[in-house]
Amino acid sequence: MSTKIFKHIQTSVVPLPIENIDTDQIIPARFLKATTREGFGNNLFRDWRFDGDDNPKQEFVLNNPNYGGKILVAGKNFGCGSSREHAAWAIADYGFDAVVSSFFADIFKGNALNNGLLPVQVSEDFLKKIFDAVYADEHAVVEIDLVDQFIKIVATGEQETFEVNPYKKACMTNGYDDIDYILSKKELVEEFEEKR
């Protein structure tokens, strides 16, 4: 079954300079009751975005019309906590194609990659440069190229390469899926079971 293909994007970014953003902030547990993958974007960062009466909190970046784009830029240890894939679904459903941070939690990173949402890990320095660029000009454009594995602040030309597992890169650039890969090795699984 094919998944979303990701090769290259160039867009403005949404800055969220907070560290240790956990998956309970990305999508609180009370919104995990849906039985499909769609619609979680409405509740992305729910309790930071809306008050108790469901009114938008003006100070939160997603409610600030000056910021927008396909890249979310956040502080280190992004996606820590629960394994809920709903966090990756919510970010992708909201309209982001990539998340940039100086450090990602393990399970979140895997979940994002399995949903065509690219986690881009950059150095602390480069993360600061992106924040500086977007706070200087809210329309600052960032380019992410998965094929050549670089991220660039277009206005200044500053760029950095990033790591990505070669297998997951092949999956994302071609829309391949882990299950198809394991199913292609099914006879090995059965052999393994017989030998035990």
């Binding site: 629960s82 394994s83 709903h86 990756a88 399970i107 895997g110 399995n114 882990d178 299950i179």
Partner: peptide, 10 residues
């Protein structure tokens, strides 16, 4: 260890 739903399906 914990896994996401795509992995649950896997």
């Amino acid at each position: 260890f914990g896994i996401g739903t795509s992995q649950v399906e896997q």
